[in-house]
Simulated scan of single mutants.
Amino acid sequence: MKILTVTGYKPMELNIFKQDDPRIAFIKFALEKQLIAMMEEGLEWVIISGQMGVELWAAEVVLDLKESYDIQLGIFPPFENQTSRWPENYQETYEELIMSADFVEPIYKGDYKGPYQFRAKNKWFVDKSDACLLIIDEEFPGSNKFFLSEAQKAEDYAIYMITPDDLDDAVTELQMSDPDYWS
Score class of each variant (00 low, 15 high):
Met1Gln: 13
Met1Phe: 11
Ile3His: 07
Leu4Asn: 13
Leu4Tyr: 10
Val6Gln: 03
Lys10Thr: 02
Met12Thr: 13
Met12Tyr: 15
Ile16Phe: 03
Lys18Ala: 08
Gln19Arg: 05
Asp20Thr: 09
Ile24Asn: 03
Ile24Glu: 01
Ile27Trp: 00
Lys28Tyr: 01
Lys28Pro: 03
Ala30Phe: 04
Ala30Glu: 00
Ala30Ile: 07
Glu32Thr: 03
Lys33Thr: 05
Lys33Asn: 06
Ala37His: 09
Glu41Thr: 10
Glu41Trp: 08
Gly42Met: 10
Leu43Ala: 07
Trp45Gln: 02
Trp45Met: 05
Ile48Pro: 01
Ile48Asn: 00
Ile48Trp: 03
Gly50Met: 04
Gly50Gln: 03
Gly50His: 04
Val54Lys: 02
Val54Phe: 09
Glu55Thr: 01
Leu56Glu: 06
Ala59Thr: 00
Glu60Trp: 05
Val61Gln: 06
Val61Phe: 06
Val62Trp: 01
Val62Glu: 00
Leu63Thr: 04
Leu63Asp: 06
Leu65Trp: 10
Lys66Gln: 11
Glu67Gly: 01
Glu67His: 02
Glu67Met: 04
Ser68Glu: 12
Ser68Tyr: 08
Ser68Thr: 09
Tyr69Asp: 06
Tyr69Asn: 05
Asp70Gly: 07
Asp70Val: 08
Asp70Thr: 09
Ile71Ser: 08
Ile71Leu: 13
Gln72Ile: 03
Gly74Val: 01
Gly74Trp: 00
Pro77Gly: 05
Pro78Met: 08
Asn81His: 05
Asn81Ser: 05
Asn81Leu: 04
Gln82Thr: 00
Gln82Glu: 01
Gln82Trp: 00
Thr83Gly: 01
Ser84Tyr: 06
Ser84Asp: 07
Ser84Met: 07
Arg85Trp: 09
Asn89Lys: 04
Gln91Lys: 11
Glu92Leu: 09
Glu92Arg: 11
Tyr94Asp: 01
Glu95Ala: 00
Ile98Pro: 08
Ala101Gly: 12
Phe103Trp: 15
Pro106Cys: 15
Pro106His: 14
Ile107Phe: 15
Lys109Ser: 15
Gly110Leu: 15
Asp111Met: 14
Lys113Trp: 09
Gly114Ala: 14
Pro115Trp: 14
Tyr116His: 15
Gln117Val: 07
Gln117Ser: 08
Phe118His: 13
Lys121Gly: 10
Lys121Asp: 11
Trp124Phe: 15
Trp124Asn: 10
Phe125Val: 04
Asp127His: 09
Asp127Phe: 06
Ser129Gln: 04
Asp130Arg: 06
Asp130Leu: 09
Ala131Cys: 12
Cys132Lys: 00
Leu133Met: 08
Leu134Val: 06
Ile135Gly: 01
Asp137Ile: 02
Glu138Ser: 08
Phe140Gly: 03
Gly142Trp: 00
Ser143Pro: 01
Ser143Lys: 02
Lys145Cys: 10
Gln152Arg: 15
Ala154Gly: 07
Ala154Cys: 08
Ala154Met: 09
Glu155Phe: 04
Glu155Ser: 14
Asp156Ala: 14
Asp156Tyr: 12
Tyr157Ser: 08
Ala158Tyr: 12
Ala158Asp: 14
Ala158Glu: 15
Ile159Lys: 07
Tyr160Asn: 15
Met161Cys: 14
Met161His: 10
Thr163Asn: 11
Asp165Val: 12
Asp165Ile: 13
Leu167Phe: 10
Leu167Ala: 09
Asp168Thr: 14
Asp169Thr: 13
Val171Glu: 10
Leu174Gln: 06
Met176Lys: 15
Asp178Arg: 13
Asp178Gly: 10
Asp180Val: 14
Tyr181Asn: 15
